[in-house]
C-alpha cells in the first residue's frame, strides 16, 4: 500500500508490506490508488446471523465486479460459522471485525472502522443494504470518506470499475440514474431488489479477523425485539391490512391467521396512523420495503407510496373498490368486503 497510515491492526510496526495477511498483496497494483474490487457490508447481529438482504446484494456484487468481492462483518466468534456460506455466495475476502465489548449496532464506530478499512483496501465501490441500519450507516461512511452515495438503488450496472446507479424518486414517479465522480463509489440497495444467487458450495475464500476501536459509543438501555409474526422484512407470506379494514377485531384475526399459515402481518400507513398497527409493520415509502412470495392485501387501496415498498412475487388484493390502484399490480383481485373475507379465511385455515 502506497498510502499506509500505519494505524491498522496488522501492522503494529507501521510497515505494511511485510505484514500483510496472506493473499492480500498479490492483488494490488502499487501504481494505482483504486482497485477493481467491491466491498459489501454484511449486516448481521452480534451472533453472526446475516440479514437476508445481503445474499442478493452479494450476487449482484459478484456479477458486476471486475475484481474481487470483499465483505465486512461485525460479529462475535459465532460469525465464523457464516464463513462458508458467505464464500459460497461470492465473497473472496471477508473482514471479520471483532471487538468483544460491542454487542449492538454502533453506527459511528462501525462507520469509522469501515472508512479505515476502505482507505486500506481501496475498493472501487461499497455496497450496503438499505435496511434501517444500512441507511443510517452508509451516509456516515460517505461523509468520512468525502464521497458520493446514492440511496435505495433499484438498479446497479458497471462499466469497468464505474458504477451506474438508478433509483426511484418523487414517490416512484421517476427513475434517476446517478454516478459518483470519486472513489469509492457508494450505494445503498433496497432489500429484495436482486434475486438470491445459487450458492457455489465448496467455494473458498479468505477470512481476516480485525479488531477495531470504539468511537462515540451508543449506550443502549434496552432493545425490544418483536415477537414472531412481526418480522415483515423476511416473511415469505405477508397478510397486510389497509384502510378498508373497518373492524378492529380484524387485526387480531390477521395475527391468528398469520400464526396458522406461518405468515407475518404488515399494514399500510393509514392503519399505522390510526394506531391499530405498530409503525414497525408499515410497508411503503415511509415504512419498510418487503419482498414476500405472497402478499395478501386486505383493504389496501395501493397508493404509490405504499407500492414503493412492495416487491412481492404475487399479490392478491381484497378490496370493495374494483378500481383500486393495487388491482393493477395484483395477480388476483377479489372484489368484496375485506373484514368478512379475512374472517372466513381464518375459519378455513
Amino acid at each position: 500500500m502506497s498510502n499506509c497510515s500505519g494505524s491498522c491492526s496488522t501492522c503494529e510496526d507501521g510497515n505494511c508490506s511485510s505484514r500483510l495477511p496472506p493473499g492480500m498483496l498479490a492483488q494490488y497494483d502499487l501504481e494505482q490508488d483504486v482497485s477493481d474490487d467491491i466491498l459489501v457490508f454484511i449486516e448481521s447481529d452480534s451472533d453472526g446471523n446475516v440479514h437476508p438482504s445481503v445474499i442478493g446484494l452479494l450476487g449482484k456484487a459478484r456479477q458486476i465486479s471486475s475484481g474481487r468481492v470483499f465483505g465486512v462483518m461485525f460479529a462475535g466468534a459465532e460469525g465464523r460459522q457464516q464463513y462458508d456460506m458467505l464464500f459460497s455466495y461470492g465473497i473472496d475476502t471477508l473482514y471479520h471485525m471483532r471487538n468483544p465489548s460491542v454487542k449492538d449496532f454502533q453506527p459511528l464506530t462501525f462507520a469509522e472502522a469501515i472508512a479505515d478499512l476502505s482507505k486500506r483496501i481501496t475498493p472501487a465501490s461499497i455496497l450496503i443494504s438499505a435496511t434501517p441500519y444500512g441507511r443510517e450507516l452508509a451516509p456516515l461512511i460517505a461523509a468520512k470518506l468525502d464521497t458520493g452515495l446514492t440511496a435505495d438503488c433499484t438498479r446497479l450496472e458497471a462499466e469497468g470499475r464505474r458504477l451506474i446507479m438508478s433509483r426511484p424518486a418523487l414517490g416512484g414517479n421517476i427513475e434517476a440514474t446517478i454516478e459518483t465522480d470519486r472513489f469509492p463509489q457508494m450505494a445503498t440497495v433496497r432489500p429484495g431488489t436482486f434475486p438470491d444467487p445459487e450458492p457455489e458450495v465448496g467455494r473458498k475464500g479468505t477470512a481476516i479477523s480485525r479488531p477495531y476501536q470504539i468511537v462515540s459509543p451508543k449506550e443502549i438501555i434496552s432493545a425490544d425485539v418483536p415477537s414472531p409474526g412481526t418480522d415483515i422484512g423476511s416473511a415469505k407470506i405477508l397478510i397486510s391490512l389497509g384502510n378498508g379494514i373497518r373492524k378492529r377485531s380484524s387485526v387480531e384475526n390477521a395475527y391468528r391467521l398469520a400464526e396458522r399459515i406461518g405468515a407475518s402481518v404488515s399494514c399500510s400507513r393509514a392503519l399505522a396512523d390510526k394506531g391499530w398497527m405498530p409503525r414497525s409493520a408499515q410497508v411503503g415509502q415511509s415504512g419498510k420495503t418487503v419482498s414476500p412470495d405472497l402478499y395478501i392485501a386486505f383493504g389496501i387501496s395501493g397508493a404509490v407510496q405504499h407500492l414503493a415498498g412492495l416487491r412481492a412475487k404475487r399479490i392478491i388484493s381484497v378490496n370493495r373498490d374494483r378500481n383500486a390502484p393495487i388491482n393493477s399490480v395484483a395477480y388476483k383481485a377479489i372484489v368484496g368486503d375485506a373484514d368478512a373475507i379475512l374472517e372466513s379465511v381464518l375459519r378455513q385455515a
Binding site: 426511484p168 421517476i174 440514474t177 454516478e179 373475507i341
Partner: peptide, 30 residues
C-alpha cells in the same frame, strides 16, 4: 456535490394482467 444525475426517466408501471374475482360469496373468495 459528489454525485451527478446522469439521466432521469419516467417510470411506466408494468402492466400486469389481473384476474378479477368479482361478485363471489365470502366463503369462495376465502
Amino acid at each position: 456535490s459528489r454525485t451527478k444525475v446522469k439521466s432521469v426517466s419516467t417510470i411506466i408501471p408494468k402492466k400486469k394482467s389481473t384476474e378479477f374475482i368479482d361478485g363471489a360469496d365470502t366463503v369462495s373468495a376465502a
